[in-house]
Design a protein around this nucleic acid. Structure first.
Lengths: 258, 258
DNA sequence: CGAACCCTTGACAGAAATCAACTAAGGTGG
DNA sequence: CCACCTTAGTTGATTTCTGTCAAGGGTTCG
């Protein structure tokens, strides 16, 4: 059963998002009064590319994939995890969505009307500033992604991704892939077969994969291959659509959307 | 000799940029008082990736390439033509540049201090709104670029690019490439050799290339190959860094940065 | 006039997509 | 509970694409 009303305990969580944390209480009220929440089953198409942008989406639980389609081909652009927002840019521009969105699992979303959004950032300068910051972060995230695609080979992209996931998990050697491999392959710009083979070949470069489990056996070797770079891989999580399967991180006691 | 003062006739031109056209006169004054202009020779590195963002750059004359470097590899991310601005996102975030910038020819730029920028969009909501819109446009432009890289083959990207250039030039059959081929190759995500061969092979698909000159001999055939898509190729020029070599266009009497 | 540099072409090696088959796991319905 | 079906993942064989290296022609610029 879809829940239409926001839960009381969800409001503070939303409020803590960088996008909303600095705005005036009254503005926040306005936004949230027009908003509603809903739980969607897995695999549901939330947004179809080309459609007009009516609502800013906030992921409270679950996982949402942003993807694009062209000429019977499809690719994953990003994955949004709790608590993160998406399609801010289309809402602001009042333009058609460039990407589609679908739930990867049962997900609870909050939908904020785009008209309210546009009204509020005219009346609340602090919110406007936050929106700019958020958007700038999203922009930088996509630039990083494009840089990775153009400057790195497949194996280098995989190695970088694994190192980054390891870092996010707390610089541990072992962790689990947060998404299906086929999705990861698409995000990294290659076919599933290619990823499968590349992962196996990477065992010679310091990482062992067993199903979903990843163990970095020789970090120095993997780093030598990936050559991680702050201007491509982070470190700052630049906005909500920064990557695939970045789980919520606790930085200095502050819970950040991935 | 570099000119430090802004020319009187340049101010209205800047003012007409979408980023500045809606702001309060006083705010515009403030920004422009802190700004200065300078003419740079060709091939000069204006910005090095990783450096802090101190100035918003506006191209008044000439041509500026945004590019990235990693592991002795380099790629073109965009080309900015008059009148367009760049690195707004880094200025706003007060973050290190993700891209470098260099002049492709003798260019006249106007530099607006980032601190002034950040101050003004706190005090002038209309400017904040414009900045959000501009940034949203830049974001969408990079998303389009990434989509092209991930969804299209090299030949499809080239064909799309040629069709888009033709459209910008007024849907003419013949036009000239606005940039060097090696740069175009890098922008489109391939080597110069690859582009050279692909261009030749495209003669079977309705386009003839002779040096810098391009003639579309069979548009229907080229369209069939490129399958242009509004959600990748435009039509709206989403921000200043929308592509490579998009010349200033006159749309409904309004001069737009490419 | 020489020195870069751009562009092209050829030959080759490496990388990646494609097609196909097979396994394993998960979910559905009888 | 089991048979069945779907789907993710892997692997192999093959083809296509792409990058790399090398060389040569043409142009520009100092």
């Amino acid at each position: 059963m879809p829940t239409i009303t926001l839960r009381a305990r969800e409001l503070p969580e939303i409020r803590r998002l960088p996008l909303f944390s600095e705005m005036r209480p009254a503005s926040f009220e306005t936004l949230m009064q027009g908003a509603y929440a809903q739980t969607f089953p897995s695999g549901l198409e939330l947004i179809r590319q080309g459609d007009p942008a009516d609502f800013l989406h906030i992921v409270m639980e679950g996982m949402v994939e942003l993807y694009s389609r062209w000429a019977e081909r499809e690719c994953t652009m990003a994955v949004v995890l709790p608590v993160g927002s998406f399609i801010l840019a289309a809402c602001i521009r009042d333009a058609p969505h460039l990407m589609s969105a679908r739930t990867l699992e049962r997900s609870r979303l909050i939908l904020v009307p785009a008209v309210a959004l546009r009204a509020v950032f005219r009346s609340d300068p602090e919110f406007a500033v936050s929106a700019i910051g958020e958007l700038a972060g999203c922009y930088r995230a996509v630039v990083r992604h494009a840089k990775g695609l153009k400057l790195r080979t497949s194996r280098e992209r995989i190695a970088s991704y694994l190192l980054r996931q390891s870092h996010i998990a707390g610089d541990v050697a072992g962790f689990s892939l947060p998404v299906e491999k086929r999705l990861l392959a698409s995000y990294l710009g290659m076919t599933a077969e290619n990823l499968s083979r590349a992962l196996k070949s990477l065992e010679a470069d310091g990482v062992k994969i067993d199903g979903n489990r990843v163990v970095i056996t020789d970090r120095a070797r993997l780093v030598a291959l990936a050559r991680p770079d702050a201007l491509i891989d982070g470190p700052d999580p630049d906005g909500a659509t920064a990557g695939v399967g970045l789980p919520p991180v606790t930085v200095a006691g502050l819970r950040r959307g991935a």
